[in-house]
Design a protein around this nucleic acid. Sequence first.
DNA 1: CGCCCCATGTAAGACGTTACATGATTGA
DNA 2: TCAATCATGTAACGTCTTACATGGGGCG
Lengths: 187, 187
Amino acid sequence: MNTSKIPALGYALLGLLMKPSSGYDLRKVFSSTSMKTYSDSPGAIYPALRRLQEQGLIRGKVEEGSGLRRRQIFRLTSKGLAELKKWITSPITREDLESGLRTVMLRFAFSETAVGAAASLEILKSLEAALQPHLQTMREQLQAMKAIAPTSGRLALECGIRSYEALFAWAHYAITVYEKQMQGGPS
Amino acid sequence: MNTSKIPALGYALLGLLMKPSSGYDLRKVFSSTSMKTYSDSPGAIYPALRRLQEQGLIRGKVEEGSGLRRRQIFRLTSKGLAELKKWITSPITREDLESGLRTVMLRFAFSETAVGAAASLEILKSLEAALQPHLQTMREQLQAMKAIAPTSGRLALECGIRSYEALFAWAHYAITVYEKQMQGGPS
DNA sequence: CGCCCCATGTAAGACGTTACATGATTGA
DNA sequence: TCAATCATGTAACGTCTTACATGGGGCG
């Protein structure tokens, strides 16, 4: 009943809260770093934090100390960490690819810290496996489209294919990085 | 007052409606082709169509003919075509890149049919120009991150960089395609 | 006749956006 | 003291998701 469904922003917050932070800290991460795809507006973040707390995934504590501004620091509960791990380690489906890669990359970015390097490798291999048939269908679509569609439509599809090819190459590269790293010293 | 703000789905519908279609036809496009990023659920499409009609951008006509199922065919009004063109030809900003490329690619995909090959070329050049500084800041972020972040976080950022590099290469390629085409015969 | 696909729609709820509001603290 | 920033929130609004509902028409 509790963790019914968590939106992408919720998982982004859970991942970032592996390092305890205030709502304002989190907003700054979203607004200043490369995570601009997520909303940095207070109207999104604070309600999301409240929901996560109601689900028992995080816990906030108002910071004590005399001359300080009121500031609530949130941190993961054990239940929250478990949920984060579960999300990260769930296998990558073709829907994950079709609905854009934001979610997948978010999972990967958090994987090493939250679960471990083995989990990162697992995601990469799962991604590689899901990518191959997906690329195949896109190439077929391109062939089917070649006759009818205008140049711009065809090129747009080619762009998608190229970016998935780049993703594939990256996954390959990342796998070698991890395999080398774990061979040397898996810590 | 009228065309206050149109969400991405609305523009996707406008673009597809350059070819008159029913709501069901549009749903099939979203569910069957590579446009799976947009919702194919009736609860999204039909209200969106109604809104576009209320704004005077499209007009629906119930299909006549004896033995037919009730079927409403929508088509663009001149105002709708104008709005579509305006959207397509507006310059590409860095926010367009930061918030993902779905929108930009959608504009490009429709550009040739809606406005003309010159507009497609314009988008590509605008994209190329916006891409360069964006890539630069991403590379700087990677450098800044190298010391602190875990491998997976760094690799995730590298993935983003690589995909933007692929986009850049694609834009270059697409520009040559268009320049060759217009040189030969701009129709 | 019953089943599945066509084709359209609605209702409840969740979520994000935008805009506003509040107060405390720092620095000029 | 005045402005800017820190830090948190709330309210209205629009949109998407999910699920349900409705009926016609082809097909075995």
